[in-house]
Every structure is written in C-alpha cells, then in structure tokens.
Simulated assay, not measured.
Amino acid sequence: MSDKDTHTHIERTEKTGGSTGLAFIVGGLVVAVGVIAWVIYGGADDDVDISIEGVGEAVESASESVGEAAESAAGAAENAAESAAESAESAAEAVESGTENN
C-alpha cells in the first residue's frame, strides 16, 4: 500500500469591533426616546407665573435720564451754532477789512 499523507488545515477567524455603527444608532434611539419621554411626562409646567417688581421706578428713572441727555444735547448744539455764527461773522469782517486795505 502506498503511504498517503493527508493534512487537514482548519482556520478560524472571528470578527470583532464591527458593530460600532450599530452602537451609535442604538444610542441615538435611546437618547431620542428619553427626550420624548421627558417632554411628555416631565416637561416644564404650563403654569408659569413671572412677576417683575420695581420696573415702573426703573422706567421712570430711565426716562428722566433720557430727557436730561436730550436737553444737554440741545444746549450743546445751540452753543455750537452760536460759536459757528460768531466765527463766520469774524471771518467775514476779516475778509472785508482785508479787501478795503488793498
């Protein structure tokens, strides 16, 4: 008889770490369900009561300050106009006196 050498080679491969995409999808679904549950069952109350005290005094003070600033700006504009008029008059006088001397 002839001698036959028979060898059997079995190779095993394992797939690991290939489910990260699935983990992100499942995690996103869990977060979405949690947010929806919070909104439906434990969300904010519909009865919100907000009161702000002292607003009238603050508005009155602010309006007084704005009025004072407006008066100050008007006074400054009037002073600037008077100063410009005086400068124009003195410039006109200087031009007239310069033309008379020639």
Rank of each mutant, 00 (worst) to 15 (best):
A37Q: 07
V35S: 00
G21M: 02
A69Q: 04
G28D: 00
V59F: 14
T20H: 07
I50G: 03
E53G: 03
F24G: 00
D45S: 15
E57R: 05
E57S: 09
I36Y: 05
A73N: 03
V66R: 05
F24S: 02
G54Y: 01
A84V: 14
E57W: 04
N79I: 13
A70Y: 12
G67L: 13
G18N: 00
F24M: 13
E60L: 11
V55G: 02
E68F: 12
D46W: 13
G43M: 02
I50F: 10
V59A: 08
E60Y: 09
I40N: 00
A76M: 13
A81D: 08
K15E: 14
A62F: 14
E82G: 05
S51Y: 14
G17T: 03
G75N: 14
G28R: 00
S19Q: 06
Y41T: 12
F24L: 13
A74T: 08
A62W: 10
S63H: 12
I52N: 03
G43A: 00
D47T: 13
T16H: 03
A80T: 08
S19E: 04
A44K: 10
W38R: 05
G21W: 01
W38K: 06
D47W: 10
D47F: 12
E71C: 03
G18H: 04
L29M: 09
E82L: 11
G75H: 06
A69M: 05
E82D: 08
V26A: 02
A84G: 05
S51M: 12
A81L: 10
D45F: 11
E71V: 14
T20N: 08
S51Q: 15
E57I: 12
A44T: 11
V48E: 07
G56T: 14
Y41G: 10
A23Q: 04
S65E: 12
E60G: 11
A84H: 02
A73W: 04
E57K: 05
E53C: 03
S51H: 11
A44S: 12
S72K: 15
A44E: 14
S72G: 06
G54N: 01
E53Y: 07
A69C: 04
A76T: 15
V30R: 00
G34A: 09
A85Y: 05
G56N: 07
A70M: 10
S19Y: 05
D45E: 08
G21H: 02
I50P: 00
E60V: 10
A76L: 12
